[in-house]
């Protein structure tokens, strides 16, 4: 398929979503022009204009800070989540210990506990990373654990007949079997990582898109608030697109397990 055909097929697949979004944007713009209260409801044109005017501040000063927190927090969350999944898969005793604990972490509202992290770590990256981990690692751990348990008994027995030890069985069979589940959990949790970073920046940071949007709220600058939110959404969408691309190109055995 050449580029033209790819574009055509993308348009065909998403034409209803794109048309609806375009219609909503037009309606939004019309409504904004009727209401004419910019700090409450700025229109899309005004937001885009603000985005352009503040491009230096938003893209060079604020966005990198948020990106660092999102990427570091998400990466650590994946590592911790996968590690917990491996431990739970290793032994029923470890599962009995770990599962209730990680389930408990899910009952804590991130919004409420993040101020505590700020108290512990101050206005640092550490507090934001902790908030992201708390919001995402449970889903990663549970999905990966389920994936590890999907390994076919016959496949594990075959490895046994070859004399495979538990490390080899994990590397050759269990981990690849669990990868599709892990990728699904990454797609689900990446937007949460962005939300977690923004919330943590709202509650305690000196830089970042969350911090900036809060600052702009206090200054009643509606378009700048929306511009920050727009960039946060773009980070989440770009992350999901990247994870989907990796999934489609490298985890192609999803339907063969």
């Amino acid at each position: 398929m050449n580029r033209m055909q790819v574009s055509m097929s993308m348009w065909k697949n998403n034409r209803w979503a794109i048309s609806t979004a375009a219609l909503l944007l037009i309606l939004w713009e019309i409504l904004a022009r009727i209401i004419r209260i910019e700090h409450i409801l700025p229109g899309p044109v005004s937001i885009l204009r603000c985005l352009w005017d503040l491009r230096g501040t938003l893209l060079i000063q604020q966005m990198p800070a948020t990106l660092v927190a999102v990427l570091a927090g998400f990466l650590l969350s994946v590592l911790i989540g996968v590690f917990c999944a491996i431990l739970m898969d290793r032994s029923p005793v470890l599962e009995a210990i770990i599962y209730p604990l990680i389930l408990l972490t899910q009952t804590i509202p991130v919004m409420c506990i993040t101020p505590l992290f700020v108290l512990w770590f101050g206005y640092t990256l550490g507090a934001r990373i902790l908030a992201i981990i708390l919001g995402t690692f449970f889903t990663i751990a549970v999905n990966t654990y389920d994936g590890l348990r999907l390994s076919r008994r016959e496949m594990l027995e075959l490895m046994d007949t070859y004399g495979g030890n538990s490390r080899q069985i994990f590397r050759e069979v269990k981990l690849p079997t669990a990868l599709p589940n892990l990728m699904t959990s990454l797609k689900i949790t990446f937007p949460w990582a962005v939300v977690g970073a923004a919330v943590a920046e709202w509650l305690g940071a000196t830089r970042g898109l969350g911090y900036y949007s809060k600052l702009m709220v206090t200054r009643m600058n509606g378009p700048a608030v929306y511009a920050s939110v727009f960039l946060l959404t773009m980070i989440a969408l770009a992350g999901i697109a990247l994870i989907k691309w990796i999934d489609r190109h490298y985890v192609v055995w999803r339907n063969e397990i």
């Binding site: 016959e154 075959l158 007949t161 004399g163 990868l179 397990i257």
Partner: peptide, 28 residues
Amino acid sequence: NFCSYMPQNDLLLPWSTVEKNVCLPMRI
């Protein structure tokens, strides 16, 4: 390793190439 077992289903690893599948017992 005194016997080699071939099960009813081929049980090839879908994430590995044919060569890597064939190498599996030797990797172990």
